[in-house]
């Protein structure tokens, strides 16, 4: 092989494309994606709704055949050996994995059996995983009787029952209350830390991507627009967001002049008595800024420095908000 793949690479995709036929013609949902995922990481795949996240994910888990391109997932070729891929990955779909009427034990054991795991072993592994996910004692309950957070953890247990090296989680925390989300995140970290499983998750929540992922891939309009750690991506935003509130709008022209004089300042905007701009290392800039304003006879009544969020990153990279 001329194209050497490192043993630490668990997903390697080149030029993945997917077009759908619709009544209005051909729609390119994914327009050629290259991505590389290293073993043992939690990788967040971030993008707004409709960006092509789920389509990419479905191609990687063999639920959709790519229109073009190729990928190797856990050492198996996506096109030539989809069954090999299926044996080695876990997949937790956005809309769940279990029938609400079915007993938890039935779903776990029947799912494990489809991977060739004997019943007794399936039960042993299932009880063990349920315990690890704080789901003791649910074996004979119906899946529909679990709370939203419990059901989501059960989905992950289902995805891990055959001990895959790589698990895909599609929008894991959608629809959960804040407490359940935080709890789910610690369990997802546990999947990597305790089981050594690589986690590839899609999300359209910035806080989720920020708090969980070692590495981020940002997708927009069917293309990857950025890649790196959350800190890397944040450093691409020009600086921190500075907000100053003045005593009166009359002081604004003077304040704008002072702000523009700050080294590296950009995006200076004023509105009424509120002045906003971006500057690198905002916390260090602030004392000098207030001193200079004082020298010009301007006394701010409020000052705020905000670190860039992934929201800001997305806005900088794509020119639109993640909520659009």
């Amino acid at each position: 092989m001329t194209d050497q793949i490192s043993t630490d690479t668990i997903i390697r995709a080149r030029g993945l494309k997917r077009t759908f036929k619709t009544r209005g013609g051909m729609v390119e949902a994914v327009k050629g994606i290259d991505l590389t995922v290293e073993r043992g990481r939690i990788v967040g795949f971030l993008g707004p709704n409709g960006a092509g996240k789920s389509t990419t994910l479905k191609m990687l888990v063999t639920l959709l055949t790519p229109t073009e391109g190729q990928a190797t997932v856990v050492g198996c070729d996506l096109r030539n050996d989809p069954v090999g891929v299926r044996r080695r990955i876990g997949y937790v779909a956005q809309n769940g994995t279990t029938s609400p009427e079915a007993k938890v034990g039935l779903e776990i054991v029947s799912h494990a059996e489809l991977y060739g795991i004997p019943r007794a072993e399936a039960r042993r592994r299932g009880e063990e995983l349920l315990g690890a996910f704080d789901l003791d004692g649910v074996w004979t309950r119906t899946c529909g009787s679990l709370s939203g957070g419990q059901r989501r953890r059960l989905d992950i247990v289902m995805g891990l029952i055959h001990r895959p090296e790589l698990v895909f989680l599609d929008e894991p925390s959608t629809g959960l209350d804040p407490q359940s989300r935080a709890n789910l995140w610690s369990h997802i970290r546990g999947v990597r830390d305790r089981l050594g499983t690589t986690v590839f998750l899609t999300t359209h929540y910035m806080d989720e991507a920020d708090s969980l992922s070692d590495n981020l891939l940002v997708i927009d309009h069917g293309k990857i627009v950025a890649e790196g750690t959350s800190a890397d991506l944040k450093s691409r935003v020009r600086g921190d967001a500075m907000t100053l509130t003045l005593r009166s709008p009359d002081q604004m022209p003077g304040a704008v002049a002072v702000a523009q004089a700050v080294a590296g300042a950009g995006n200076v905007q004023s509105e009424g008595n509120v002045l906003r701009f971006q500057a690198p290392n905002g916390a260090m800039v602030l004392p000098g800024l207030i001193r200079d304003l004082g020298a010009a006879g301007i006394e701010p009544i409020g000052a705020e420095v905000a670190r860039p969020t992934l929201e800001d990153v997305f806005l900088t990279l794509t020119g639109r908000s993640l909520r659009d």
């Binding site: 888990v61 063999t62 639920l63 069954v83 299926r86 044996r87 990955i89 997949y91 779909a93 956005q94 809309n95 769940g96 994995t97 279990t98 029938s99 609400p100 799912h111 489809l114 991977y115 060739g116 989905d155 289902m158």
Partner: peptide, 13 residues
């Protein structure tokens, strides 16, 4: 709708 079909499709079955 509850994801059972996709879940089974991703197994080697």
């Amino acid at each position: 709708r509850s994801g059972v079909i996709d879940r089974m499709m991703v197994t080697p079955a």
